[in-house]
């Protein structure tokens, strides 16, 4: 700007020259200071209305805790059942007329198969003795003329083999052996359970998507109300030369705080539930002679919970800000 020759200035104008000299270095610095200031002051603003802030954060927290908690529980069940899947075994029921020598030879052959970790032979007599002992039908068995039980080869697959498709192929091969009457996978139901868990996980994901949308709406609506409450302030700052980015900033940070607080509440809720559940679960698994302990929230899950809370908070406020801030102009 071209100014006319200056008359002697009052002292208020005097520091200008100095200020101009130091501006370039100061500005980027000031930019971050400003961001920090907005971050803190938007938290302060929320702090001034603790009740309504807490209500919004609680809604977000509960909405996040539901899918997160479900996910953690399903993970636990899956971990438990994967332990069972490792102990899966295949029972080969041998045709009754096959001689013991041939069965032992077959067992030797099977030990060399890929994917077979161990083969155990249970002769017809052993099977009968075991059955007599376990079933309590001893007297009934005595009345039979002949041992009705077949000899059994119990096959334990290697852990790699426990994967369903590989297991299916192994079973198919076993069934084609001449001496084998029936090949039965004892752990079929574990796979079915796994299938159910997968369905559950997908359900948790869908529930999560739905609740994420709810969070967007909750944050968006809260920010919308804040924008309207501070309408006058927005108009004034626009008149003074504030850019849209400047005006947007405190609202985005408010959304950030809502998301963060909601995620922290969700984390506390899930951890609380797990603590409450872990006692009975430990007791239950003790009754089953199991070492199973309920696994808590690991670092990765915790971090992604925090991150998704923050992302949803920011996205929700972005939606509200984008929609409502443009409309507020000085008149």
């Amino acid at each position: 700007m071209k100014r006319p020759a200056r008359k002697p200035r009052p002292r208020a104008a005097e520091p200008e020259a100095r200020a101009k000299a130091q501006k370039p270095r100061g500005r980027t610095n000031a930019y971050f200071t400003h961001h920090l200031w907005v971050l803190v002051s938007s938290l302060g603003q929320l702090w001034r209305t603790p009740f309504s802030t807490l209500m919004t954060a609680m809604v977000i927290g509960i909405a996040l805790a539901l899918p997160a908690g479900l996910y953690v529980l399903l993970n636990n069940v899956q971990q438990l059942s994967s332990g069972w899947e490792d102990s899966a075994q295949v029972s080969l029921f041998i045709e009754r007329d096959v001689a013991e020598k041939r069965i032992l030879a077959l067992a030797d052959r099977l030990r060399n198969w890929e994917g077979v970790a161990e083969v155990r032979y249970i002769s017809r007599e052993q099977a009968l003795a075991e059955f007599r002992e376990l079933s309590g039908f001893g007297d009934a068995l005595d009345s039979l003329a002949e041992n009705p039980l077949p000899a059994v080869l119990v096959l334990r697959p290697t852990p790699a083999q426990a994967e369903p498709a590989a297991m299916g192929r192994l079973l198919e091969r076993l069934r084609q052996l001449d001496a084998v009457d029936q090949a039965q996978l004892d752990m079929e139901w574990v796979r079915r359970l796994n299938g159910i868990i997968e369905v559950g996980k997908r359900g948790a994901l869908l529930l999560g998507v739905l609740l994420a949308m709810a969070i967007l709406l909750v944050v968006g609506n809260t920010i919308r109300l804040t924008i309207f409450a501070r309408r006058e302030e927005i108009v004034i700052t626009k008149l003074i030369g504030a850019t849209n980015a400047f005006i947007r900033r405190p609202f985005l940070y408010t959304g950030f705080w809502y998301g963060l607080m909601g995620a922290l509440i969700a984390w506390l809720l899930v951890v609380g539930f797990l603590i409450l559940l872990s006692g009975p679960v430990t007791q239950l698994s003790f009754l089953y002679d199991s070492q199973f302990r309920l696994a808590g929230l690991d670092l990765v899950t915790s971090l992604s919970l925090l991150l998704s809370g923050i992302t949803l908070g920011l996205a929700g406020s972005w939606l509200a800000v984008g929609r409502h801030l443009q409309a507020i102009e000085p008149e």
Partner: peptide, 18 residues
């Protein structure tokens, strides 16, 4: 107006007082 324009904190104080 100074904060909107991105002035440094110390500069803001001085100018506001002036």
């Amino acid at each position: 107006p100074l904060i909107i324009a991105g002035y440094h904190q110390s500069e803001v104080g001085r100018r506001v007082r002036a």
